[in-house]
């Protein structure tokens, strides 16, 4: 029997790792990977709460599926943006993409 707290602490750790990647890395594609890790951590939380607290209501799984769809859309648009930026400016380093910085 696995306690609920194990899942939640695991998800918190995975979220923090993703957050570190988003804040610390230079490469924009790795930042996107960090966001994926964070979304996965949130999904683990949703499913764990569904299973431990309210297995008769399916809300946790339904929202996890919404998160899947949003993650897929986000990655598609994000990678298209990076490829387009790479073509024009020959870089995907997040701190060199400063066109809109005033």
């Amino acid at each position: 029997m696995i306690p609920l707290s194990w899942y939640l602490i695991f998800a918190a750790a995975l979220f923090s790792i993703g957050l570190f990647g988003v804040l610390a890395r230079k490469n924009a594609i790795v930042i996107l990977m960090g966001i994926e890790l964070m979304l996965n951590a949130v999904n683990v939380n949703l499913v764990a709460f569904w299973r431990y607290r309210a297995p008769e209501m399916i809300a946790g799984q339904a929202f996890a599926i919404m998160v899947f769809a949003v993650a897929a859309a986000e990655v598609a648009v994000g990678l298209a943006l990076f490829i387009s930026i790479y073509r024009r400016r020959n870089t995907v380093a997040a701190d060199e993409i400063d066109l809109m910085k005033w």
């Binding site: 609920l4 918190a12 299973r51």
Partner: peptide, 20 residues
């Protein structure tokens, strides 16, 4: 963030509930 999340979650009374 990790410390705060862990602290908030472990101080919540429902955390020790067994699997339904």
């Amino acid at each position: 963030i990790f410390g705060a999340l862990t602290w908030v979650l472990t101080s919540w009374p429902g955390i020790s509930q067994p699997m339904a």
